[in-house]
């Protein structure tokens, strides 16, 4: 509990809070979040989450559940083209709203009259994109101007809960490092809960995917990074460069 001239936080750092829990009372300088709400000077949790309490009176509710993505400007997302309109594409980004990708973003120029956008992106294509604009009145707008952005032509997309994305990346990218170095795969984690996995062979691919699924289900248990490292070593051998290690297929 943190007290500071009449302001009180009622839970310790790393407590689990549920909807309706009175987290704190008083004056706090905390950025707005959909995960808690205020009545007068009382702060209540709106979801099942992890309460983070930092020095002074800063608290944050970190969501533990949630299948849909809250769009944020600047985030990298993996979208699925679901419809084609005259000047752009409608994109599913696993959010509450469909997103829009203007054709000019992909083409680098305005489209010519009568130009068929299906030549560039079709329904069922995945794209790696960034959220360029979003507010309460408009659907998210995407851009593919940037290094590595654009149509995804190969690989496997793994779907996870957007709430688990930080866990798959890890503190200082620690978990992501373990995943890529132990499997030798190219792994890109998008903020909207889609992960692009590209591997040299199907064993590494299957193993990387099951490791991601383990992270999803055990995200709250201590020592996960080391357990994932051990799991990957067991399945794939110590070094991804060692050809004979691929012959080791343990159960």
């Amino acid at each position: 509990m943190v007290e500071n001239s009449g302001s009180k936080i009622f839970y310790q750092d790393r407590s689990i809070v549920t909807p309706g829990d009175l987290i704190a009372e008083g004056e706090f300088q905390v950025p707005w979040s959909p995960y808690f709400y205020k009545i007068g000077n009382k702060y209540y949790s709106a979801i099942t989450g992890l309460l983070s309490v930092k020095e002074g009176n800063i608290f944050e509710v970190i969501p533990l559940e949630g299948q849909r993505y809250y769009p944020r400007i600047g985030d990298t997302v993996i979208g699925l083209i679901e419809d084609i309109e005259i000047y752009g594409w409608v994109v599913d980004i696993k959010s509450f709203y469909s997103a829009y990708l203007p054709a000019s973003s992909l083409l680098g120029r305005a489209i010519a009259p009568g130009e068929d956008l299906r030549r560039f992106l079709n329904i069922g294509d995945y794209i790696l994109a960034k959220v360029e604009a979003y507010d309460r009145t408009i659907n998210p707008v995407l851009t593919v101007k940037g290094k590595g952005l654009g149509r995804i032509s190969s690989g496997v997309i793994v779907e996870i809960s957007p709430a688990k994305v930080p866990r798959v990346i890890g503190k200082n990218k620690s978990m992501l490092e373990v995943l890529t170095s132990e499997t030798g795969c190219d792994i890109q984690v998008a903020q909207n809960g889609r992960i692009l996995v590209k591997c040299a062979n199907s064993l590494s691919e299957e193993t990387a995917i099951s490791a991601i699924n383990i992270i999803q289900s055990e995200s709250h248990i201590k020592g996960l990074t080391e357990r994932i490292r051990a799991y990957l070593r067991e399945k794939l051998g110590g070094s991804k460069n060692d050809a004979s290690a691929e012959a080791k297929t343990n159960t």
Binding site: L80, I123, D125, Y126, V156
Partner: peptide, 25 residues
Amino acid sequence: NQNIVPFVKKENILAALDRGVRIDG
């Protein structure tokens, strides 16, 4: 169209079938 199967997923399914398996093994 109720379920859009992404293009790369469709490719993966077909490639796996050519190898004699399905994507869930």
